[in-house]
Design a protein around this nucleic acid. Structure first.
Length: 490
RNA sequence: CGGGGUAUGGCGCAGUCCGGUAGCGCAUCUGCUUUGGGAGCAGAGGGUCGUAGGUUCGAAUCCUGCUACCCCGACCA
């Protein structure tokens, strides 16, 4: 047995770290709060990225790239935005280093102090709206549907691999529209795309909803989000889509002439998902044996392990090669591990830790009988099946795994979603069961803040499919017309 | 930014109380035997003990300062 994974029941946080290390997704870096994304982890990100990128292009968005450095003065232009981000900005003040003669120490060269400080982007609204104000003159210039894949930096006090790191990878979409309605529709359209990415590809069920004022993006009029529930009963904000109104257009003086020949401020949206999704993926499906990956997003969907004896391995390797080609031709991502020096049992354990959905094992006996052993990562089921018709069976099984993971996660989420009507009940459910709690809320900041202070639970979202229901706020007794989702969150 | 903990081969740790020149497991390398669920035996390589200073004939060990990282809380994708 190699290094063990701490069981979830013992220490969930340690389990999460163990999974990432054992599955070789990421490493800590020499810089606090920064992480090294290893090839396996990055391959996962590439699949998420490529899937989403396809969906965005499908809906008319184009990619561009804006710079990492933003003039410090830009950040100050939108009042709420600066308040939200100023506390976590990395600031560039000098352009070169020099060796101090007396001490031999390497220091920023005082002579190279910048005229104006640069900040490392925590998000790009400011530089993008500065640019849009130059690009947009007429209603004919609209809409602009732009996205960028980039890294951003937020100087976090407390970090966790994938979930919160000082530097992370994401995409940020920034769109400009002629009308409020069009911008609002865009915000919603993106939310649906995010939900589809999460549910249909990552098999991670999400609640679509709107953030309350206190949880809103700094500078947004409205923030929509998708919220997922992790195995420890805590919620994870997995993506956000913001309707920015005309806030940034006003701050950056971005106007256009409408069809009535009047000057009007542009309507805006912005939206993003990040490498945090990988953290969500891990905490949605994985178990005490290691990572569990949904087939549609798994870098390797099928691994084939030949079982070789010292001599007479040729027929086995030939069969493996034939099956590999067959599966590859069908578009399945397959990997053959024919390495010598590692025993089959070792390899089985290795791919289990890495979450490969299906493992095939083929030995001399199987070749003789025209069969092959197939093992599922999600259920640990193992069966010997005919090589004849294998491709179709694999395809079906991959789909079955995908569906099983999603169904399992939905069932878990539903089990851990509780409706409560009193504050006492709220507190006891939160304490003993965790998960999402549906409760009435009077719509005020004060109540939300008090609940947060007293219980550490926040309103994750006001669900978009909220049903009208007369009720009273569990704390204040004031009237409410529908339930909102509360939870402790990451 | 507060509280706690840790720092010794690549990883995980022991050694520190009571100073005498560094050890164990895993991993790595070589050879042989193995190979259908993390192999066995034999041998080998690899460490300025986080850092700076002090005490001492002698410091991983005692003293002082510093730094980094991890965990737990307040703030955030």
């Amino acid at each position: 047995m190699a290094d063990a994974i701490t069981p979830r029941s013992e220490d969930y946080a340690q389990w999460y770290i163990d999974i990432i290390k054992q599955a070789k997704l990421a490493d800590y870096s020499p810089v606090r709060g920064s992480m090294i994304i290893r090839p396996t982890g990055y391959a996962l990100w590439e699949n998420i990225r490529d899937t989403l990128d396809g969906m965005l292009k499908e809906t008319g968005h184009q990619n561009a790239y804006f710079p990492l450095f933003i003039p410090q003065s830009f950040l100050a232009k939108e009042a709420e935005h600066v308040e939200g981000f100023a506390k976590e900005c990395a600031v560039v003040t000098h352009s070169r280093l020099k060796i101090e003669e007396e001490t031999g120490e390497l220091i920023p060269d005082p002579d190279s102090q910048l005229e104006e400080n640069l900040i490392v982007r925590p998000t790009s609204e400011t530089i993008i709206w500065d640019t849009y104000s130059k690009w947009i003159r007429s209603w004919r210039d609209l809409p602009i549907l732009m996205n960028q894949w980039a890294n951003v930096v937020r100087w976090e006090m407390r970090t966790r691999l994938f979930l919160r790191t000082m530097e992370f990878l994401w995409q940020e979409g920034h769109t400009a529209h002629a009308t409020e309605k069009e911008a609002q529709d865009e915000t919603m359209k993106i939310l649906d795309i995010y939900a589809s990415l999460a549910e249909d590809y990552m098999a991670m069920p999400v609640i679509k909803g709107a953030k309350t004022a206190s949880e809103r993006f700094a500078g947004a009029v409205d923030t929509l989000c998708i919220e997922a529930l992790m195995q420890d009963g805590k919620a994870l904000q997995a993506g956000t889509s913001h309707f920015l109104g005309q806030n940034f257009a006003k701050a950056f003086n971005c106007t256009f002439q409408n069809k009535e020949n009047q000057l009007e401020h542009v309507w805006a949206t912005s939206w993003g998902v990040s490498t945090r999704l990988i953290g969500g993926l891990i905490m949605t499906h994985s178990d005490d044996q290691g990572l569990v990956l949904p087939p549609r997003i798994a870098p390797t969907q099928v691994v084939i392990v030949p079982i070789l004896r010292k001599t007479g391995g040729e027929p086995v390797l030939e069969a493996v090669e034939r099956i590999e080609k067959m599966l590859k031709d069908a578009g399945i991502r397959v990997h053959v591990d024919a390495r010598e020096g590692y025993r089959p049992g070792w390899k089985f354990a290795e791919y289990e830790v890495q979450g490969v959905p299906i493992r095939l094992a083929l030995g001399a006996r199987d070749v003789e009988h025209g069969v092959i052993e197939m093992a599922r990562r999600d259920t640990f089921e193992k069966e010997t099946v005919p090589q004849e018709g294998l491709t179709a069976l694999i395809q079906d099984t991959l789909e079955a795994i995908q569906k099983n993971l999603f169904d399992r996660a939905v069932a878990f989420r539903d089990d851990l979603t509780t409706s409560v009507d009193s504050y006492d009940e709220f507190k006891s459910v939160l304490e003993e069961k965790g998960g999402f709690i549906l409760a009435h809320w009077d719509g005020t900041d004060e109540t939300e803040t008090r609940i947060k202070q007293e219980t550490k639970a926040t309103i994750r979202c006001i669900p978009l499919d909220q049903e009208y229901e007369d009720g009273v706020d569990m704390l204040t007794g004031k009237p409410s017309t529908g339930r909102v989702y509360f939870a402790k969150s990451y």
